[in-house]
Design a protein around this nucleic acid. Sequence first.
RNA 1: GGUAGGUUAUCCAAGUGGCUAAAGGGUGCAGACUGUAAAUCUGUCGGCUAACGCCUUCAAUGGUUCGAAUCCAUUACCUACCA
Length: 423
Amino acid sequence: MSIIDELKWRGLVADCTDAAELEKKIAAPVTLYCGFDPTADSLHVGNLVPLLALRRFQLLGHHPIAVAGGATGSIGDPSGKTAERQLLTKEILDHNIVSVKVQLAKLLDFEAKQNPARLVDNASWTQNISFLDFLRDIGKHFSVNQMVAKESVRARMEDREVGISYTEFSYMLLQAFDFMVLCRDQNCELQIGGSDQWGNITAGIDLCRKKLGKTVFGLTLPLITNADGSKFGKTAAGAIWLDPNKTSVEDFYQFWIRTDDRDVIRYLKFFTFLSRDEIEDLEQQHKSKPEARIAHQALAKELRNLIHPSTAGVAERASKILFGTHFENYTSDDWEFLAKYSHSLEVEKAKLIGMPLVELLVLAGLSPSKGQARKDIEGRGISINNNPPLPNFGYIIQAGDLQLDKYLRLRKGKKNYVVVTAK
RNA sequence: GGUAGGUUAUCCAAGUGGCUAAAGGGUGCAGACUGUAAAUCUGUCGGCUAACGCCUUCAAUGGUUCGAAUCCAUUACCUACCA
């Protein structure tokens, strides 16, 4: 199966240039790239789609290049954005680049004998070029008329409330320049990216043809949407990050477990490397017995293994303990384990015993304020250990609430848990 | 540079002197139903308080007034039109 067939089956092709020619080209190994702008100090699950696509290409023998956007990230891509963005400071940008590079490096194989991945930073060829040279050599090839017609720019021009700065307007020139440089120096012939990158990619293709006389290709991946219409990868608490310090291993796992039924098979295709047979088998199981959530568990497990390989088994175990019923039998190992991988809080024992529950809820971060904590309790959403919800908000923590004289599980609703440890 | 309009709570958005902690909607959170699903229904959604109530908030500062999100002045930011 060619990479294109593979991607098509997975629903991962939104659009591509000259499909017939691309099919031919791709029969032999090609060099391709995808850019990742360091807009934060970690990648999030949304970045996974193009990144895993690079990996899929690599697995089938192609040569992937991951481009860290040191230059483009300092400008800000207007694509898909409804408002002008705040420029990141130099310090934040540097910090982000370092972090993102580490994550990119984890998901591609740099040791492969035939087709090792490469990681480059577009600042390396952009930062020393002068503004005048850039305008003369690159800018001359762009027609403002065409740039204005591109969806990403047009949307912002039409929105009277927002507009677009010259800085962001120029973004596509930088990205086109990247493609041209990679094509020239590394023989890169294909750029992939999210569907919002279409305009930027075609700009690069045009530039390669004009500057280098070469025909190169572009392929975009679909924007991932949730069945309920909300944005993929965002929760109220924010994005789901790959960095375990920003999104705990347990939360990361839970995120996938809670996938909408209607999305779970699509996501298996998008985000895992399971084979077609395996996914179709899961689909059968899911259809016949959705409440067992077999597909959800497979999805969560695959992703956890991929992103947090050193924690194999951790999330499943934590999940079993948190959502299971054999609460009284926890050993102190179980408790320590929970404290480490889910949300936890340490409080001095002397302070803990006798502390009003509302105060503990706020300390634990389960309720934003004491007033809200009170309402949460009155709404019968709060319980300690595995007891029924507490009926009144005057409750004070007792010594008897501590399991093994040390641990206490505080729960809000079904999904929010904090393990409180007395010290 | 000139002219006009805007800035309200987590987001959108009403409100043009007292009845306004501020309509409505979204999101969120909780409850019921379930499967840690969806849909639906209910409650809740500035802070403190057991509660009466008190405090802080409508871009910022200063003013008018018994009383201001609402009126005036200055400043900042955003947008449009004109030059």
